[in-house]
Design a protein around this nucleic acid. Structure first.
Length: 817
RNA sequence: GCCGGGGUGGCGAAAUGGUAAACGCAGGGGACUUAAAAUCCCCCGGGGGCAACCCCUUGUGAGUUCGAGUCUCACCCCCGGCACCA
């Protein structure tokens, strides 16, 4: 296949040569001085991988290649591009895998990291390996612990007993967002509830700001929407319902409810508390305590799968207690039911069965009264309700507010409640505080010491890192306590405050804490005495472009925004948003189907690179479809880019000096224009198509290329196929790396302009001919030429011509009737 | 149920309201070659016609427009996310 005489393209030779050179010359890495003095810095970040034992698959390669192409493009435009790579190697993934194969994660991770590094180098990523991070290294997690301490100092970390999601299979606590439909996100086991002491970060204090800032950052709309939904802001009111005794006298206890429809308060015919609500004991009529407690115990033990089934029949029991509806003054019964959740709002609701479908279903189930308080068009106060009515209308059965339009009623009723002292407007968020503790082994120990006298004492900064000890028995058990709690020689220590014997915190922190700040560390890995250097951070951050998976739209991206906001507020950072631009890449499928181990259709990069080379693989991946939408990897399809790179090689190396052909020259300038537009828009597939089309024009009819016709194509393809670009660039006589200068070509608009243009001629919007006319030809002339076409004549014959639509350089349309 | 993103040839996909299917794969035919590879040229949505040409075609149905893959409305299907959040 290799034609020696013509010096054929040998991908593996070219790729090995340039990877070696990049390493020898430090093409992609920065010295500390270079980081400090960078001119026009551009921080090109991509989500760092978790180094699995399987190695990188084509989906990872796709994401990294797309991000790398962006970085290489910026570099060719003259920006100083910092493109680091690291490993997110702590966490339950690694730990579970280690358990499965019976090895210690401390032994496993380094070989996985080595394999990932090999693969990442092999695909020709422009990574600065001098500034890599591995979250499991004490030099890194020392500063993860430092971040924890900063939050603790700021009063944003607290330990409290809380009902948590417990996965009985992983034997660990899961954050709410790691529970999917009541099941463990990772293993699919139904999740149970437990009460365990946990560390929380108070991200809810930042909810409004996290929401507001979304308005001015350049992120994919989709990602922003996900965060907006996750934060879940809702506006409504807090209303107070006083508890009354059998005689109808207030007992002094007040139940607060949160509602978004305070205007329907006249329709609140009963109240429902969450089974876990603290007032359940107080309110329950002693005669009914048996069934109430039984129900509560059942709800408590019930796994969240059953509890979260939406379409299940509503259950609940009456407490026998009553409270007064502050609007109507009437006593209404208090129930408990598991459809009311303790961790949203106040854990209690006023039930308005007429206008809330859940309450309606419950009322039907237990024969509770249903009152209409909103009349839709054509309804009156007594129109029976077949289901909850949530549409527009006016208030009815609402005393002084009858006739108020629903559009004004929320405000009117809220004001009324506030004036009378039983309520006020309130904003609520769906977002919960971030549970950061894990009762596991494979993570950074939380840097706290528990002292009987002094309580929870932060580990002094100078004592960091709290090193995770190597232990052989790291298997979690059912106790809900970290494996570290079995290592007495590790956890017994002295209190930094009073010197008494004390115990270390044995929980480790969530991996999302590791990944919440890693991009601050990359440019500052040269510093051992601080997490990040102020000057360097000012130079490089915020991140200019962040590319990663949409699956991290809420968790990782929200948590890292929160941490950066906190560090900003504490005076450690100038910026408060970590990423100026974020774009989510699409997902790769293979042969029309989702890639999965069980289907056996997982594509691995190494054999593809062996056969075709990294440049071909990269180009093919980027050619398959729009980067933000993903694509379908078809083994056959790689032939296209493979042949294309061969032809490019051939044309460049056989190119002759001399005048370009004017038509080809025009094509070249048009191509430069198009590619320059499309690469920053991540429209890689069409950019590559344009270069292919241009090369086809250059080679059309078997002609030999002129140097001026193919030389610009080398940088144009360089973001996708960097090795061949380097080699061709060198063979064209240039010194040094193509990426070390602003080598992106510029198009000449005058040379890109077409001299003659093909114009569509339509009759009644149907194409009847196309004509070539000179650019800028006068309208009259074009219309006359159009009319002269035989086929047009035929269609105009005998018809009444009503209008002529003329669109310059596009078409002529005769409207006849 | 709610919120996103989609639905275009045999396949991956292109198309500022203006010639639908660029680019590529697969397929067919040809040139060059002893032969093959590579390369180059031609064909390649469906139907009709000897031909010139004509008709149909972007999930379905309406609408706006001289003109709709593109805009509007309704509906169907696929993919993601959220989901008893009061």
């Amino acid at each position: 296949m290799v034609n020696e005489e013509r010096d054929g393209y040998d991908p593996s030779a070219v790729e090995e040569k340039w990877q070696r050179r990049w390493e020898e010359r430090g093409t992609n890495s920065f010295t500390l001085d270079e980081l400090r003095s960078a001119d026009d810095p551009y921080y090109n970040l991509m989500m760092f991988p978790y180094p699995s034992a399987e190695g990188l698959h084509i989906g990872n390669i796709y994401a990294f290649t797309g991000a790398d192409a962006h970085g290489r493009y910026q570099r060719l435009r003259g920006r100083t591009v910092f493109e680091p790579m690291g490993f997110d190697a702590f966490g339950i993934h690694s730990e579970n895998f280690a358990l499965k194969v019976g090895k210690n994660p401390m032994d496993l991770i380094p070989s996985n990291v080595a394999n990932f590094t090999r693969q990442l180098k092999r695909i020709g990523g422009m990574f600065d390996w001098e500034h890599s991070v591995d979250t499991t290294q004490p030099e890194y997690y020392k500063w993860t612990q430092w971040v924890f301490l900063k939050l603790l100092e700021a009063g944003l970390a607290e330990q409290k007993e809380a009902p948590v999601n417990w996965c009985p299979s992983c034997k660990t606590v899961l954050a709410n967002e790691q529970v999917v439909g009541g099941e463990c996100e990772r293993c699919g086991t139904p999740v149970e509830q437990r009460r365990i002491k946990q560390w929380f970060f108070k991200i809810t204090r930042y909810a409004q700001r996290l929401l507001d800032n979304l308005g001015h950052i350049d992120w994919s709309e989709r990602t922003k929407k996900s965060q907006i939904n996750w934060i879940g802001r809702s506006e409504g009111a807090r209303l107070d319902f006083p508890v009354v005794d059998d005689a109808g006298n207030e007992t002094g206890t007040v139940i607060e409810v949160y509602t978004t429809r305070p205007d329907t308060v006249f329709g609140a015919t009963y109240m429902v508390l969450s089974p876990e609500h603290p007032l359940v004991d107080t309110i329950t009529n002693p005669g009914l305590s048996a069934p109430v407690y039984a129900y509560r115990d059942k709800a408590k033990s019930k796994d969240l799968v059953a509890r979260q089934k939406v379409d299940k029949t509503k259950t609940g029991v009456s407490t026998g207690g009553y409270c007064r509806n502050p609007a109507t003054g009437e006593a209404i019964p208090i129930w408990i039911a598991d459809y009311v959740l303790m961790d949203y709002g106040t854990g209690a609701i006023m039930a308005v069965p007429g206008h809330d479908q859940r309450d309606f279903d419950f009322a039907k189930q237990f024969e509770l009264p249903i009152v209409r308080v909103v009349a839709g068009p054509g309804d009156d106060a007594d129109t029976p309700l077949e289901e909850a009515y949530v549409g527009p209308g006016t208030l009815v059965n609402s005393g002084p507010f009858d006739g108020t339009d629903v559009s004004d009623s929320v405000r009117a009723l809220t004001d009324w409640a506030a004036e009378n002292g039983w309520g006020e407007a309130q904003v609520n968020f769906r977002l919960h505080d971030w549970c950061v503790s894990r009762q596991r082994y494979w993570g950074p120990p939380i840097p706290v010491i528990h002292c009987d006298a002094c309580g929870a004492v932060p580990v002094p900064e100078e004592d960091l890192p709290v090193v995770l000890p190597r232990i052989e028995d790291f298997k979690p058990d059912d106790s809900g306590i970290s494996p570290l709690a079995r290592v007495e020689e590790w956890f017994v220590t002295t209190c930094p405050k009073c010197g008494a014997e004390a115990k270390r915190e044995t929980d480790v922190s969530d991996t999302f804490l590791d990944s919440g700040w890693y991009f601050l560390r990359y440019p500052s890995t040269d510093f051992e005495d601080k997490p990040f250097d102020a000057d360097i951070t000012r130079t490089w951050l915020p991140v200019d472009m962040y590319i990663g998976g949409q699956e991290h739209a809420v968790l990782h991206l929200l948590y890292s925004r929160f941490l950066i906001m906190v560090l900003h507020d504490l005076g450690h950072l100038d910026h408060e948003e970590p990423y100026d631009v974020f774009r989510a890449h699409g997902l790769i499928i293979a042969e029309g189907a989702k890639m999965s181990k069980s289907k056996g259709n997982v594509i691995l990069p190494d054999p593809v690179i062996d056969e075709f080379g990294a440049d071909t693989l990269r180009t093919y991946l980027m050619f398959m479809g729009p980067f933000e939408e993903g694509g379908d990897y078809r083994a056959e399809g790689i032939q296209g880019p493979y042949g294309f790179l061969h032809r490019l090689w051939d044309s460049v190396l056989t190119a002759e000096d001399g005048e370009s052909d004017p038509d080809v020259e025009r094509k070249v300038h048009q191509t430069i224009r198009q590619v320059t537009e499309q690469i920053p828009a991540l429209a890689y597939n069409t950019a590559i198509a344009a270069v292919m089309e241009c090369l086809n024009a250059v080679r059309s009819g078997g002609r030999t290329a002129k140097r001026a016709e193919v030389e610009p194509l080398v940088p144009l393809i360089a973001p996708f196929a960097p090795h061949i670009a380097e080699e061709l660039w060198e063979r064209l006589g240039h010194e040094g790396s193509i990426f070390d200068g602003a080598n992106w070509p510029e198009h000449d608009e005058a040379k890109a302009v077409e001299s003659s243009i093909t114009i569509a001629v339509q009759v009644n919007g149907k194409l009847r001919a196309s004509i070539d006319v000179a650019k800028e030809a006068p309208e009259q002339e074009v219309v006359a030429a159009a009319r002269a076409e035989d086929n047009v004549k035929r269609h105009l014959e005998g018809a009444q011509e009503r209008r002529v639509i003329y669109v310059k350089d596009r078409l002529v349309n005769f409207v006849v009737g």
